[in-house]
């Protein structure tokens, strides 16, 4: 058993001597349970503009679920049966909704300067997810196995050839496009979304710009004016448990410790 488990609270902690122990310690240090699954959200999260991140995840879940069913049943099923048409349409419209809410989420975070307060990686994983989602959708359109996919693949092939990647990303090669669509690109999107959500949990939901004053720690020498005070305001907004079902009597009035505001996106 690792030394990390033994001893009282005051005892000096020793580093684990196994890679699994060190990994566990690093994971717990980066994302302790109260950050990973917080009880409350900052008050400023009670706004419609904050719902588009979770709406993106919800539509992505429907996309993955309907896509799994389509992959199991195959093209003749999704073209020739009523239930197949239904799941084909669910998959398509979930993609439309995914892009709709993801772009609105991107706009909101751009105008909110969501990379503030040490959140550059949160912003970058989100932006790269959007960029990867575009070829994921394109490979889906060319995997339909109908005249529409033939038209799209030949038109897009010209575009890929013109930028010099048509030889190894061949849109008229159904097998290659289908592999990209059902495995490689969705795996990249899901991995990036998981990283994005974990980073949001770690750094907390970015507050609105005008809340820099509102959420700055009151009193003290800094008075909310120094860069450090600003950073503190960005990283530790007040937590309101009632935002996510917490008890009304559990409001935490002083600025929460860094990162305790983790939650939505």
């Amino acid at each position: 058993m690792s030394a990390a488990h033994g001893g009282g609270a005051a005892a000096p902690r020793e580093r684990a001597d196994t890679w699994t122990g060190r990994l566990r310690e690093a994971a717990l240090a980066a994302l302790p349970p109260e950050k990973l699954l917080p009880d409350g959200q900052p008050t400023y999260v009670a706004s419609w503009v904050y719902v588009f991140g979770v709406a993106s995840i919800a539509s992505l879940t429907v996309i993955i679920g309907s896509g799994m069913i389509l992959a199991l049943k195959g093209p003749s099923w999704w073209h020739d049966t009523g239930v197949g048409h239904f799941f084909n349409s669910v998959h398509l419209w979930a993609v439309e909704l995914f892009f709709f809410v993801m772009v609105v989420h991107l706009w909101a975070k751009y105008w909110m300067a969501a990379w503030r307060g040490g959140r550059a990686r949160v912003w970058m994983t989100g932006a790269v997810t959007f960029l990867i989602a575009v070829p994921t959708a394109l490979t889906g359109y060319v995997s339909q196995q109908n005249f529409d996919s033939q038209w799209i693949s030949t038109q897009a092939k010209d575009a890929m050839n013109s930028v010099g990647i048509g030889a190894f990303f061949n849109l008229t090669n159904f097998g290659q496009m289908y592999s990209y669509h059902v495995l490689l690109l969705p795996a990249a999107v899901v991995t990036l979304v998981l990283a994005h959500v974990l980073l949001v949990r770690r750094h907390g939901v970015v507050p609105p710009i005008e809340s820099k004053r509102r959420f700055a720690p009151s009193g003290g020498a800094a008075g909310g004016r120094s860069p450090r005070a600003g950073r503190s305001a960005l990283e530790g907004g007040k937590v309101d448990p009632s935002v996510r079902g917490g008890s009304e009597g559990e409001q935490a009035d002083p600025p929460a410790p860094r990162g305790s505001e983790g939650g939505g996106s």
Binding site: S47, V49, V51, F100, V104, W107, A108, K238, D240, S242
Partner: peptide
């Protein structure tokens, strides 16, 4: 939708702010 998300009040948001 983006404009409405900014303009429209979120249910219960005002009450929560006042309680704080």
């Amino acid at each position: 939708v983006f404009a409405l998300a900014i303009i429209l009040p979120f249910p219960g948001a005002k009450r929560r702010r006042e309680q704080r």
